[in-house]
């Protein structure tokens, strides 16, 4: 994507037919600007208003909803293909036992379904017999004895309590409106964090500027800082490329544009 094109119309060229009269015609008063334009003319990014309280509540609700689904049985990630594993990063560590579990296939047999709403070919997948009777869970939690209520004994919908985001609001009000209360209300953990950091959170107004600066900074050394100091894959990949002169920094940057 190049923003050069957009810069173009300001010059007023675009010589369509070259005749007089039309909007694209040559205009002697306004000669076209043939000088080369900058590929990326500096543009002031528009700064959006700080989020209002209501908006932040909506966002908080959305996040909690998403988190619940991510922790639930339906969230799935793609497995890594064979041979694509990171030989260093993917070694199983002791701390892995604490990690959030990732599923490659959704866990379907834990809840009851309304089978009429599913096509017959999926019934097997849901753990429902062809006759229409529940199998009572493939793990045999409650053995289906014909009746629907019986079959569903082992199966319960997962029900999660509603998180409270109200308490953080009050904190906000103490902090004052808008800008400096920015880091409030992100669920409980967030509140905790905020408590921990104390004064640091308050100075959010320079965070805005810092954030922008930082973004630029980070973009420069793309893909460098997340893997730690030594990144094996980067090393080998760049080793294969012949043009890798100073391999470290430009590994990601070369084909960025």
């Amino acid at each position: 994507m190049s923003r050069g094109g957009r810069g173009g119309f300001r010059g007023g060229f675009g010589g369509g037919g070259g005749g007089m009269g039309g909007p694209f015609g040559h205009d002697p008063d306004n000669p076209p600007d043939y000088s080369t334009t900058e590929l990326f003319p500096p543009q002031q990014p528009p700064v959006p208003n700080p989020p209002s309280k209501e908006e932040r509540r909506i966002v908080a609700r959305y996040r909690l909803y998403r988190d619940k689904i991510h922790n639930g049985p339906l969230y799935t990630v793609m497995g890594k293909k064979r041979g694509m594993e990171d030989p260093f990063g993917d070694v199983s560590k002791y701390s892995a036992r604490y990690k959030r579990q990732k599923r490659r296939v959704p866990k379907l047999d834990s809840r009851p379904y309304v089978k009429e709403f599913f096509p017959e070919e999926l019934w097997g997948t849901l753990g429902i017999d062809a006759d229409g009777e529940e199998e009572g869970g493939e793990k045999g939690k409650g053995k289906g004895k014909g009746g629907k209520g019986q079959g569903q004994q082992g199966k319960k919908l997962i029900f999660s309590a509603l998180d409270v985001i109200g308490e953080l609001d009050e904190e906000d009000e103490e902090d004052g409106e808008g800008e400096d209360g920015d880091a409030g209300k992100k669920g409980k953990k967030k509140g905790l964090l905020q408590g921990l950091l104390g004064g640091d959170v308050g100075d959010d107004d320079d965070d805005d500027e810092a954030a922008e600066e930082e973004e630029e900074e980070v973009e420069d050394d793309f893909g460098d800082d997340e893997e730690g100091d030594y990144n094996a894959e980067m090393y080998f990949n760049d080793g294969d490329d012949d043009d890798g002169d100073d391999w470290g920094d430009e590994g990601g940057g070369e084909d960025y544009y």
């Binding site: 966002v59 905020q194 640091d200 959010d204």
Partner: peptide, 21 residues
């Protein structure tokens, strides 16, 4: 790390807020 997390959370909030708008 905590500071970085703060930055991430507030930045995500801003982006999501923009999305909601």
């Amino acid at each position: 790390e905590k500071r970085e997390l703060e930055i991430w959370l507030s930045r995500e909030e801003k982006l999501l807020c923009q999305l909601m708008r």
